[in-house]
Computed example of a mutant assay.
Amino acid sequence: MAFIKISEQSSLYDDLEKKSIHELLVDINTEDKKVALAVEKAIPQIEKLVTQIVPRMRKGGRIFYMGSGTSGRLGVLDASEIPPTFGVPPTHIIGLIAGGDTALRNAVENAEDDTERGWQELEEHHINSKDTVIGIAASGTTPYVISALHQARAHGILTGCITSNPDSPMAAEADVAIEMVVGPEFVTGSSRMKSGTGQKMILNMISTSVMIQLGRVKGNRMVNMQLTNQKLIDRGTRMIVDELGLEYNHAKRILLMYGSVKAAIDAYQNDDLK
């Protein structure tokens, strides 16, 4: 069967320059409503991937996101938010983008076409069989990602991918292919729109469910979050107040003493602070 890039097909809308601002916004929103439904259909594949990631990470494995352009930026974004949210080192989930950090703000010419650099970067991180590599590409045809997945899989490393096109070359290199088919973009080919939104949703689902399974959440709260500003210190203090019934200033004092909600609660419940 021939590979068809649904993400590159013509928009369902035309004469966009003739539309009013209101019409543009309503039509974009109409298309965005399709994204969550497309992600929902991919839940079995997302679950399959997370189920295989968790035991690997319990043994010290890591997740590597790999992409170019918007896809790469979203991977780096999700990876960068894990340490402050869940209190884990930045080495647990690592985002790699074609062209390096320069590509976070600027297009790097031909970076996505480099078939060697992706695997070289993984080797620089001393990738091993406990790790997982997740390729992100709306088209499913990015050489930087495909070649890295191919090498990773050849070395016995778990591979996954997130794409907006079924039966893509990237999916062929993935043990678990997450195919989120959102249809043509509002502006033809602009995969920063629906495809990017869906990628962000799926990355949230993967990293959040993994961190919960690894014990980084208690109840529904981020008890291991980093206390990097006053808002988070206040949030953490109120968590301790709710959990232990302490007076606010007492709760804040032990939070700052132990550096996380979980550590402070554990210390109090073990009679260290009573």
Rank of each mutant, 00 (worst) to 15 (best):
Y248W: 12
N229T: 12
N249W: 10
G196W: 04
S209I: 11
T197F: 13
N220Y: 12
S209N: 06
R221D: 13
T188G: 06
V187Y: 13
L255S: 10
A171P: 02
I254L: 15
G259N: 14
L255T: 04
A174C: 10
S260K: 02
L256F: 09
E179F: 05
M257C: 08
K218P: 00
I206M: 06
H250R: 15
Q226L: 15
D175F: 03
D175N: 14
M257K: 15
M211W: 12
G196E: 07
E173F: 00
S195T: 13
E173H: 06
L256C: 07
L255N: 04
M222C: 09
G236H: 03
S190Y: 06
M211C: 13
L246V: 05
P184A: 15
T208Y: 02
I206Q: 00
N229S: 02
E173W: 03
A174K: 06
T208W: 05
D234C: 06
Q199G: 04
R238Q: 10
L232A: 00
K218I: 14
V182K: 11
L244Q: 05
V217E: 00
M239H: 04
S190W: 04
K231W: 00
S260W: 10
L255M: 10
D234N: 13
M222Q: 06
Q199Y: 04
R221P: 04
V210N: 10
T237V: 08
I206N: 01
N224Y: 14
V181W: 08
R221H: 09
